[in-house]
Lab assay of single mutants.
Amino acid sequence: MDVFMKGLSKAKEGVVAAAEKTKQGVAEAAGKTKEGVLYVGSKTKEGVVHGVATVAEKTKEQVTNVGGAVVTGVTAVAQKTVEGAGSIAAATGFVKKDQLGKNEEGAPQEGILEDMPVDPDNEAYEMPSEEGYQDYEPEA
């Protein structure tokens, strides 16, 4: 019985440690998101679009440190934060509304985080759909 109880105690310690790591990862992701939003706020009209992409990228980098179902929630929060940063930029006159959601080359930025393969159960990952990809044929 002692062996059984000791095993359960060790398992509990492992769960607590994993929860603490997840909590730490979420806190880091939130900190990076805040950094990115402050970065966007300090940019001029020309830099705002690039700044919004930076927020998304920093958040995406930190999301990889967070495991399990938390990833889905962090990704949703990050996307809403990026959308909010863009709205703030438009409201303050840093950028025109028609410039939001495009990178410096004018290509749409939507789907940055949505296409990231995420499995809350950590069982399997699927690649994003290939609808947006084109076949590449090298020139002879």
Rank of each mutant, 00 (worst) to 15 (best):
G25H: 08
V40F: 11
K96M: 09
T81K: 01
K10M: 15
T81H: 07
K45V: 13
N103T: 04
K60G: 12
E83C: 11
T44C: 13
K12T: 02
G36E: 02
T33K: 02
T72I: 05
L38F: 14
S87N: 04
A19Y: 05
V52P: 01
Y136L: 10
T64C: 05
E123W: 12
G132M: 04
E13F: 14
K102R: 07
V3D: 02
E46T: 15
M127P: 02
Y125V: 08
G7K: 02
P108N: 13
G73R: 07
E83K: 04
D135M: 02
V63D: 00
T92G: 06
A56K: 15
I88K: 02
A124S: 06
G86K: 09
P120E: 06
S42K: 15
V63W: 09
V16T: 14
D135P: 06
I88W: 13
L8P: 00
E131K: 10
K12L: 11
K58Y: 13
E131T: 10
A78I: 02
G106K: 13
L38T: 15
S9T: 07
E83H: 08
E110H: 05
A76C: 07
E123I: 13
K32T: 10
G132R: 11
G36K: 13
T92A: 08
K60I: 06
Q99F: 11
T44V: 11
G101W: 13
K6R: 11
N103W: 08
K96D: 08
V66R: 04
P108G: 12
A89P: 04
V82R: 15
E57M: 13
D135R: 08
D2C: 10
A17W: 08
S129W: 04
N103S: 06
V95R: 03
L100D: 15
Q79V: 12
V48F: 11
A56C: 09
V118W: 05
T81G: 06
V118Y: 03
N65L: 11
A89F: 09
V26L: 07
D135Y: 06
E104T: 07
A69N: 02
E126M: 10
V3T: 01
E131N: 05
T33V: 06
E137W: 03
I112Y: 04
V70Q: 00
A91F: 05
G51N: 07
V26M: 02
T44F: 12
T64N: 14
E123R: 05
A29F: 06
H50N: 08
S42Q: 10
A78F: 12
V52T: 07
G93Y: 04
A124C: 07
A78Q: 03
D135I: 07
G14M: 04
L8G: 00
T64G: 05
A91P: 11
T72M: 07
M127C: 10
E123N: 14
K32P: 00
G14E: 11
A76M: 03
A30I: 13
A124G: 15
S9Q: 12
E13Q: 07
G132L: 12
G51Q: 10
G36V: 15
A85W: 05
P117Q: 11
V95K: 00
V26W: 11
E20D: 10
K102P: 01
T92C: 04
E61L: 10
G93A: 14
V16H: 11
K34Q: 04
G67V: 07
V48P: 01
A90N: 13
K58I: 02
G132H: 13
A69P: 00
A91L: 06
Y39V: 11
T75R: 05
Y133H: 06
K21M: 03
E20H: 15
S42V: 06
E131H: 13
A85F: 11
A90S: 07
S87A: 12
D119V: 04
E35W: 04
G84M: 09
G106T: 12
G84S: 13
E13R: 13
L100R: 05
A18K: 04
G106H: 01
G67N: 05
K21D: 04
L8W: 11
V77D: 14
T92V: 05
V55P: 00
G68C: 11
Y39E: 02
V82Y: 06
V3S: 08
M1W: 00
G106Q: 06
E110I: 06
N122C: 11
G67M: 06
K12M: 15
L100M: 04
P108E: 07
A76P: 02
Q79H: 11
E28A: 09
G93N: 06
M1F: 14
Y125Q: 15
F4S: 00
Y133K: 01
Q99M: 03
K97N: 12
A17C: 15
